[in-house]
Amino acid sequence: MFTHTPLRLTTLATLAIGALAYAFVAGFFGLEILAEIAILAILVIALDLVAGFGGMLSLCHGALLGVGAYAFTVAAKDAGLSAFPAMVLAVALSAALAFVIGAVCARSIGIYFIMATLAFGQMAYSFVFQSPLFGGDDGLSGAPRPDLTAIGIDLTDSRAFAIYAIALVALTYLVAASTLRSGLGRSLVGLHHNEKRLRALGLTVWRAKATAFAISGALAGLAGCLAAQHTQYISPGLLSWTVSGEALVVVILGGLGTLAGPIVGAILFVVLKHEISAITPYWHAIVGLILIAVVMSRANGVFGYVEARMAARAAKPTLEKAKADA
């Protein structure tokens, strides 16, 4: 079951303070990276909710993000909504789509679940790619950033935008954590361990799965809105399954089912990508090697490794005491 261990709380607090402190001192390039990390962090928190805790490995979260990005851009630019209502609309659309995907895929598990989500994701991708409504291959530009000048914040400034992005990561984390502490979240973890028993106890399994998937989809849609606002240009590539695959890599790199771990994973991934791509164009290969090392180490990602080490250290005194008693 999901709990806030002291280690997790310390990590979260450190990350929040570190990110904010960095946002105040960083230059333009640093702030761009911060916003990129924030967008990825929101997506991987969303994915960890269903994949890490619920065992529903999804390959359609890129598509859910993309639907959010497109819905936001179309609603704000073509339908003339202001940014916040457009975001609400986009998030709701991603959630609705995720609910349908979750409900349909609820009956399948393991590899079949992954394949079904992949199929849904690719359907969304080809629809956006083919449809003339969405600019096809050329994508769409001109997504606006929210106008907060009324309270003295100018989001066209990259420092303000980075802080706004960090605030959305915090919001996402709170939504995910409170979902995991709710009845639905408890059931979700139970479903990962024993679906058959939960059904025998009276849980309507498909509805629990679909609702959890919808919440996760809403958060992915939020990441999409932020992505559209960040680059102010979107293309069908956002919906591509490689975005979903990359998100899964980040969750595994950080630590499945830890919620804080994927944020660490997002930071590592984006920083490594920028650092290594400055040295060699083959940065994917290096990241691949790191991922293989992490998986082969049998640790649950970087954060999971730290958690396990801390737990082992904490458990030691009682073992020694038991030995002394014996």
Partner: peptide, 25 residues
């Protein structure tokens, strides 16, 4: 059983679901 959980969580989750609290938000 729910293998990754504690005994208390096993009973708690079962009771929660049976009481109709398994989908609450």
């Amino acid at each position: 059983l729910f293998d990754g959980l504690t005994i208390g969580e096993n009973l708690g989750l079962s009771a929660a679901v049976a009481l109709g609290k398994g989908q609450g938000l």
